[in-house]
Every structure is written in structure tokens, then in C-alpha cells.
């Protein structure tokens, strides 16, 4: 599994290599593929249970070591997991970031074809925020 930010960085590099003449929609198509995969990864690392999803997602959103069923040192001391039991999933991909980037790119998609400059600006802004972490919620 490639971390979301790493995947997006790779995508940015790919975009940079794209001919300047490529339209904004082409960039978005490429981004969509990354986002679809990132969304699936977010689903996979969240889980379908409220307890685990809550702990994993809160930890990912705030980048803290929130406690949870899958985050205990004591438990880690137990016997190794059988191969088919997935055991402890890695910390959740930041689903909130994926979600917000999707929303931004959907906005850019609406602009594509009508206002190419606006589409590019929305795209660049969204990516900049993602990479810099500016879209993180304010925590007092």
C-alpha cells in the first residue's frame, strides 16, 4: 500500500511531466485514478466497526496516537497472528484528506472546459493544501 501523500506526490511529478498543452481535465482523470485507489485504501484501513473506525480515523485525522483496539503495546506482546487473520491494520489513510481533495477536484472538473485557468488554479490549490497539510482542521 502506497501512502496517500506519496501517491499524490508521484502524481504531481507525473503531472509535471505532462505536456503543458494537456488540458485540465486530463490532469483530473489522472488524479481520479489515484483518488479512487486512495479511497479504497481508506475504506480498507478504517474498518466496518464503529469502535475501530472511530479510533483509526480519529488518529489519522489528528495525526495523534489515539488509543483503539488495534493500537496497544500490551496486545502487541501477544502471540503472532495466524496468517489469515489480518491482525493490526496500519494506521488509517487520512480519509478526510482524500475526501476533501476529491471535493476540490470535483469542483475543478466542473470548471474544466469552461474556465481552464480556474480549473488549473483549483487543482493546484488543492494539491498545495494537501502536500502542505493546510487543509487540516483547526484543533484548539
Amino acid at each position: 500500500m502506497i501512502p496517500f501523500r506519496s501517491a499524490m506526490t508521484a502524481t504531481l511529478l507525473a503531472l509535471a511531466a505532462t505536456p503543458a498543452a494537456a488540458d485540465c481535465a486530463s490532469h483530473l482523470d489522472l488524479m481520479d485514478e489515484v483518488l479512487d485507489q486512495a479511497s479504497r485504501e481508506s475504506i480498507a484501513t478504517s474498518s466496518g466497526g464503529q469502535a475501530v473506525a472511530g479510533a483509526r480515523e480519529a488518529r489519522a485525522m489528528t495525526e495523534t496516537e489515539a488509543p483503539g483496539n488495534d493500537a496497544t503495546a500490551a496486545e502487541a506482546a501477544q502471540e503472532p497472528q495466524p496468517p489469515q487473520a489480518p491482525g493490526h491494520a496500519p494506521p488509517a489513510e487520512a480519509g478526510d484528506q482524500v475526501q476533501r481533495l476529491r471535493a476540490s477536484l470535483d469542483e475543478a472538473r466542473t470548471q474544466a472546459g469552461q474556465d481552464e485557468a480556474a480549473c488549473r488554479e483549483t487543482l493546484v490549490t488543492a494539491l498545495r493544501e494537501l502536500v502542505s497539510g493546510e487543509d487540516k482542521p483547526d484543533n484548539p
Binding site: S42, S46, Q50, A53, G54, A55, E57, A58, R59, M61, T62, T64, A66, P67, G68, G95, D96, Q99, P137, D138, N139, P140
Partner: peptide, 24 residues
Amino acid sequence: PTIGSIFAPDPMQKLPFELGMGLT
């Protein structure tokens, strides 16, 4: 207010799994 508030220091937004319950 989010369920995430019992797991992390005062998150101000709902978690994705909460939003995925009928909104997103």
C-alpha cells in the same frame, strides 16, 4: 460533535465513517 472526540484531542469535524452514514 464527533465520536472522534473520545479518541483524539478535540477534533472539530466528523470522521469519514460518520459522514459515510448517509451523507457522502
